[in-house]
Measured scan of single mutants.
Amino acid sequence: QNEKLANELKSLLDELNVNELATGSLNTYYKRTIKISGQKAMYALKSKDFKKMSEAKYQLQKIYNEIDEA
Rank of each mutant, 00 (worst) to 15 (best):
K35Q: 10
Q39E: 10
N7K: 13
Y29F: 05
I34N: 00
I36F: 07
K40S: 05
N7L: 11
I34F: 03
L16K: 02
E8Q: 07
K35C: 12
G38T: 12
E3I: 09
E55C: 09
N7S: 11
K57F: 13
L12T: 00
D49L: 04
N27Q: 08
E15W: 13
N27E: 07
I67E: 01
E69H: 12
L26H: 04
A56D: 00
M53W: 01
I67S: 02
N27H: 12
K51T: 10
S25P: 11
S54I: 12
Q61R: 06
I63A: 03
Y29Q: 03
N27R: 08
I67R: 02
L13Y: 03
Q59L: 14
D14M: 12
A22Q: 09
E8M: 05
L9C: 02
K31D: 03
K62V: 05
I67D: 01
Q1S: 09
Q61L: 12
V18P: 04
G24C: 14
K4V: 09
S54D: 05
Y43H: 13
L45S: 01
D68S: 15
D68H: 15
M42F: 09
L9A: 00
L16G: 01
K31S: 07
R32K: 11
N65K: 14
K40T: 05
M42E: 07
T33R: 14
N27W: 05
N7V: 09
L60W: 01
L21P: 04
Y29V: 03
L13D: 00
V18F: 12
T28V: 12
N65R: 15
K51Y: 08
L16S: 01
S11V: 10
V18E: 10
S54P: 03
S25E: 08
K51P: 03
L21A: 10
L21G: 05
K48Y: 08
Q1F: 09
K35G: 04
A44P: 01
N17F: 14
A6R: 08
N19R: 15
D68C: 15
E8Y: 05
N7Y: 13
L13H: 01
R32F: 10
R32W: 12
N19I: 15
K4A: 10
S54R: 12
K35R: 11
K40M: 13
V18R: 14
N65V: 06
S47L: 11
E3T: 08
T28I: 13
D68N: 14
N27K: 08
L21T: 06
Q59K: 05
Q61V: 07
K51F: 09
L12E: 01
N17A: 14
E15N: 10
L13N: 01
K40P: 00
L26M: 08
I63L: 07
Q39M: 13
E66M: 12
N19P: 04
N19C: 15
Q39K: 10
L26F: 04
A41C: 02
D14V: 06
K4G: 06
E15C: 14
K57V: 13
K10E: 06
S37L: 15
L26K: 04
Y43E: 15
T23K: 06
S37R: 09
I34G: 01
K46T: 07
K57S: 04
A6N: 02
Y30N: 02
T33L: 15
M42K: 11
K48W: 06
Y29S: 04
I34V: 07
S54Y: 11
E3F: 07
E69P: 04
L26E: 04
A41T: 02
A56M: 04
I34Q: 00
D68I: 15
D14E: 11
F50D: 04
E3D: 09
K40I: 11
K31E: 04
K10Q: 11
L9P: 01
S11G: 08
L60M: 03
S25H: 12
K52H: 05
A56G: 02
T33G: 06
S11T: 12
S25A: 11
K31N: 05
L16T: 02
G24D: 12
G38L: 15
L12R: 00
Y64G: 02
T33V: 12
K57E: 01
E20A: 13
Q1C: 12
R32D: 07
R32S: 06
Y43L: 14
G24Q: 15
S47W: 05
K57M: 12
Y30P: 01
E69C: 11
I36N: 05
T28C: 15
L21R: 10
S47I: 10
Q59C: 14
K31L: 08
L26N: 04
L45H: 03
K46E: 12
L9E: 00
L45Y: 07
E55F: 07
L5W: 02
E8N: 02
E3G: 05
N2K: 12
E8G: 03
L5G: 00
A22I: 11
N17G: 12
N27P: 14
N7D: 10
M53A: 01
E69G: 07
I63T: 04
I67Y: 03
I36M: 09
D68T: 14
A70T: 04
L60H: 00
Y58H: 10
L21W: 09
S25R: 12
Y58I: 12
D49Q: 04
K46C: 10
Y43C: 13
N17P: 13
S25F: 11
A44Y: 03
Q59I: 10
E69N: 10
E20V: 15
S54A: 12
R32C: 14
K10F: 04
K51V: 10
E15F: 13
K52V: 05
K52C: 10
M42D: 04
K40C: 11
A44D: 00
E66Y: 07
K31M: 07
K46H: 09
L21D: 06
R32V: 12
N19D: 04
S47A: 07
S54G: 05
N19F: 15
N19A: 10
L5C: 15
K52R: 12
S54V: 13
K40D: 05
N65P: 01
Y43M: 14
K46L: 13
S25D: 09
Y30E: 02
N65S: 10
K46S: 07
Q1L: 13
I67P: 01
K46Q: 12
L12A: 02
G24I: 14
K62Q: 08
M42L: 13
L9M: 01
E15V: 12
A6S: 06
M53G: 00
S11Q: 12
F50R: 05
K10G: 03
K62I: 05
N27I: 05
K52L: 15
S47N: 06
S47P: 00
L13A: 00
L45I: 07
Y64P: 00
T23P: 04
E55K: 07
N27G: 13
E66R: 06
S25V: 10
F50G: 06
E15M: 15
K51S: 09
T23G: 06
L13E: 00
E20R: 10
Y58W: 10
E69M: 13
T28Y: 13
K46W: 10
Q61F: 05
S54C: 13
I67V: 04
L60Q: 00
A41S: 02
Y30I: 05
S25L: 10
L60S: 00
E66H: 05
E8V: 04
Y29A: 04
E15I: 13
Y43I: 14
A70G: 04
K31C: 09
A6C: 08
L21V: 08
T33A: 15
S47K: 05
G38E: 06
M53E: 00
A44G: 01
A70S: 05
T28Q: 12
N27Y: 05
S47C: 07
N2L: 15
L5D: 00
E20H: 09
I34E: 01
D68E: 13
N27F: 05
N65M: 13
